[in-house]
């Protein structure tokens, strides 16, 4: 295994995480309780308590490239049981934001699903589930995903085949555009009421 040089932590990274999460990583004394309770640990490449340790050591790249960040479902076990009151789930959320910004997506399908979901929200104002599946398949090429579930759901009318569009759909779309810092298309700026 690699030797970690302790004198060279990425202190800017540590500061960013501290500021964006509002949490103090040095409060962690490595008891392992977050790992102990994490339902997803079996699927992780780096256990969450080790992510906390690597964070203390300022190991940016190792953390942002790990798969665990994408597999965490924010179930909050770690946050609820941390003896030092650290909102661990929030730190992981922030690390995931930073991984996205840095262009890492080590669990591509998880990212694709989230993207497809938000594209659906942006388009319709509400999630159109069939649309999410279609978007996900388009991004991943995984046509056979859950194909066996179709016959179970379709006859029950659980899958709406048409999106519910809402009046405020354009408002939602603008939220997304502003979030991305995109200019407003000429046709839709002004005039419309929310």
């Amino acid at each position: 295994m690699e030797t970690i040089t302790l004198q060279k932590p990425d202190s800017q990274f540590l500061r960013d995480v501290r500021e964006r999460s509002g949490q103090e990583p040095s409060n962690c004394y490595q008891c392992g309780n977050c790992t102990a309770g994490c339902p997803y640990n079996f699927a992780y490449d780096i256990p969450v308590s080790r992510i906390m340790r690597l964070l203390q050591l300022g190991r940016r790249d190792e953390i942002l490239q790990c798969k665990s960040l994408w597999l965490c479902a924010t179930c909050q076990s770690c946050t609820t049981r941390c003896p030092n009151g650290i909102d661990v789930a929030r730190i992981v959320d922030v690390l995931r934001h930073m991984a996205r910004e840095a262009g890492y997506a080590t669990e591509r399908n998880v990212k694709a699903f989230g993207d497809a979901f938000l594209e659906s929200v942006e388009k319709h104002g509400r999630v159109f589930e069939v649309g999410v599946v279609a978007g996900y398949v388009r991004k991943t090429g995984r046509f056979w995903t859950d194909i066996e579930l179709g016959p179970k759901m379709l006859p029950k009318g659980k899958l709406g085949l048409r999106p519910h569009s809402i009046q405020g759909a354009e408002h939602i779309a603008r939220i997304f555009r502003r979030y991305r810092g995109e200019p407003e298309p000429a046709a839709t700026t002004g005039g419309e009421t929310k």
Partner: peptide
């Protein structure tokens, strides 16, 4: 490591914890 939860399973208790040395 600390223990995150203890729960009953049949007539035994399952103790789920961490071994931070094993990681």
């Amino acid at each position: 490591g600390r223990v995150s939860m203890v729960y009953p399973k049949g007539d035994v208790l399952v103790v789920r914890g961490a071994d931070t040395l094993a990681g």
